[in-house]
């Protein structure tokens, strides 16, 4: 089976600033990958290149062997770092919106998760707390039956109990033909659900390894290694 994601010598500049430099990565199917790096290291830029929201300055990026575009958007489920939903909408409206928009959206699954997290489908988005808004958005993204999930800082604003629920959702949703890329700096919370990690530093890949390889070779957790590598 082809890799769900391949980046070859991928670079992206904004004016004179090089946000990503010569990134080469292969992400197979069936993996949960952590994209880890300090603030401003290029995590979000990389994810936006995968979604097609940005175009590369050099090099190429392929999703399921295709250039990012209409076809890849059908199989990529993306959680942006910022919300794009209309705040006047009710949760129920948004569910209908997603159902219209994405053929792979599973409304029942979304409703069940909303119920588990005690989100009321008649509530308007603007009445929800920041954390609850994040939960709604994550549920929408995880309720698609996609091949690639891109989660940009998915757990930052939610409480620890909801965090556990969300991580469990990711594990439960795990499919052998789908992969999940999670960008975050809350490493300690997520490292046990990851297969592999990619450390990004100043726009370059500093390290790719499996979580247990890191623990075996460095005798410390990924979180510990991260703190050491990126010590300020």
């Amino acid at each position: 089976m082809t890799n769900i994601l391949t980046a070859t010598d991928l670079s992206k500049s904004f004016g004179k600033k090089e946000a990503l430099k010569n990134i080469s990565l292969e992400i197979p199917r069936g993996k949960i990958i952590g994209l880890l790096g300090p603030n401003g290291s290029g995590k979000t830029t990389f994810i936006k290149l995968v979604t097609g929201l940005l175009v590369p300055s050099a090099g190429e990026i392929k999703v399921n062997d295709l250039d990012p575009g209409v076809e890849t958007k059908k199989i990529v489920s993306y959680l942006p770092e910022r919300t794009y939903l209309n705040s006047w909408m009710k949760i129920d409206d948004i569910l209908s919106f997603f159902e219209d928009f994405y053929p792979d959206f599973n409304r029942i699954k979304a409703q069940n998760m909303m119920q588990d997290l005690e989100l009321n489908s008649n509530d308007r988005l603007k009445t929800l707390s920041k954390g609850n808004k994040e939960k709604v958005q994550l549920i929408l993204v995880m309720s698609r039956d996609a091949d690639l999930y891109l989660l940009d800082e998915p757990i930052g604003g939610v409480d620890p109990a909801a965090r556990d629920y969300i991580l469990n959702t990711i594990i439960t949703n795990y499919q052998e033909n789908a992969s999940v890329i999670i960008s975050t700096h809350l490493i300690a919370d997520i490292e046990q659900v990851l297969d592999e990690v990619v450390f990004i530093s100043k726009g370059q890949v500093a390290l790719t390894a499996s979580v247990d390889e890191i623990r075996e070779e460095h005798h410390q957790s990924v979180d510990g290694l991260f703190r050491e590598v990126f010590k300020c």
């Binding site: 949960i32 556990d164 297969d195 979580v211 247990d212």
Partner: peptide
């Protein structure tokens, strides 16, 4: 895996 909160491959 869910019960332990770990990656299924692990």
């Amino acid at each position: 895996a869910m019960d332990a909160g770990v990656n299924p491959n692990t």
